[in-house]
Design a binder for these strands. Structure first.
Lengths: 242, 242
DNA sequence: GATGGCCTGATTGTCGGACAATCATACGAT
DNA sequence: ATCGTATGATTGTCCGACAATCAGGCCATC
């Protein structure tokens, strides 16, 4: 029988400092918007050098737990912004060689239920936002970039209509990853713009009438249409996104 | 008419350095596992001080683009690990006061389709893993912590069975957020363990037989059961997760 | 030949101090 | 009341330093 030892792990100071501050934020002992002490003061309190504190701050900053309000020096506690987190997720997925198919498949599973829920839970304000997004896509779709952006924005409005942050957060990286392929597709498929606009109107209408079933169905068609667009544009589905 | 100027933004050096290195990694110019030059060398190349380089490295490290293999000094390029990214997501959601209901609702929408896809795409190896997870839950469910962990692990196995990284990544934060409530529930509801075990067996069976419809249905029931468990255990659904 | 000890150089983690640029604030002049 | 200025605080960046650890080579011992 052999003697076994656990691996001893020595955590560097900057990570300990970051962990302590992060814990304070997670436990809501430090509230959002609260200003952190100056670096020298933190260094004094933790009993480490300012350089060490700064490295810890960089870690927390990139994690979105701290931010600096524009034109201010002191760091303030903040909740990670959805967009920023989503960006990290899509970056990670891209590096893991996610394919167009995987993104599309996830869309087919995620978006229809979201439309259904939005039909139930949307407020008048949500509906206004959705209508505005639909209008914007119909009117400003000449430039490919704008068209793509507005198409994604429509999905986001549906997401907000669900009043479910978890679903909204799950959707966000999908849209990031969808964009590049959507750009190619809209460019190459002449009828793409009109078909997207038509689908958006149907979905908007269904959500407006609180017709959950119709919202789900039209959203399902809308997403299925993307796949046809891929085929038509000659985008290989097993090709990685980035 | 007033003259307007765009806000000028001065990006600190450590962020520029981080951005340049990140771009190299994203563009796959730097490949996974490749070792980064030493800090002094990087400082020389970028023409900045080593402290500045170090702050940039902390940013990339916490983003998962760099890591240090245990027992090594040089940093190596790495792809962000799914678990780490998911942890960031669930942390963000928790800070945004996500409720049990939102998590549960997302589960109801996400898991059944995943079971359906897994029934189609699972390999024999996936099935083995799923069966093992099912067995582990059935056998080691005395300690609440183990039971919770194994229940989550079963979901993860289903996720892997979909062979869709996007869905897998969407699922992961849900499981993180589910755990605390599941812990309370399993503790307070006597029949929870047996019901979960039964549902797992049904799902496993359906996926094994490639019966997509049954897999979806049983997964839907499985998740719906959680809600009953919440009610039974007296967990308020509109209560925030953390 | 394999093992272990020892030396040397490279690298990181941490420290202390320094300084210019910017921010916050109060004070005073117009 | 508005503007300019002085003053102190804070950050971004730099320099230099040192202990601890890692990597690799050399050598003695078994």
């Amino acid at each position: 029988m052999s003697v076994e030892f656990d691996q001893i792990l020595l955590v560097p100071g900057y990570r300990k400092v970051a962990a302590v501050i992060a814990e304070r934020i997670l436990s809501r002992e430090l509230r959002e918007g609260e200003r952190l002490p100056a670096e020298t003061e933190l260094a004094r309190q933790f009993g480490v050098n300012r350089s060490t504190v700064r490295e810890a701050l960089r870690e927390l900053e990139s994690g979105g737990l701290l931010e600096r309000r524009p034109g201010s020096k002191l760091m303030t506690v903040s909740r990670p912004q959805r967009r920023a987190v989503a960006k990290d997720v899509s970056r990670a997925l891209a590096l893991h060689d996610v394919t167009f198919f995987e993104v599309w498949e996830a869309l087919t599973q995620l978006e229809p239920p979201m439309a259904e829920i939005a039909a139930h839970k949307r407020t008048p304000a949500d509906l206004d936002a959705l209508a505005a997004a639909c209008r914007r896509f119909a009117q400003e779709n000449a430039e490919t970039d704008k068209a793509v952006h507005h198409a994604a924005e429509f999905f986001r409005c549906v997401g907000r209509g669900t009043h479910n942050q978890v679903l909204g957060m799950a959707q966000e990286p999908l849209l990031d990853l969808l964009e590049p392929s959507l750009r190619v597709m809209i460019d190459k498929v002449p009828q793409a713009r009109s078909r997207i606009a038509a689908a958006q109107r149907r979905i908007l209408d269904a959500i407006g009438k609180r017709d959950a079933e119709a919202a789900r169905d039209w959203m399902a068609r809308h997403v299925r249409d993307f796949r046809k667009g891929y085929d038509f544009a000659g985008i290989a589905l097993d090709c990685r996104v980035a």
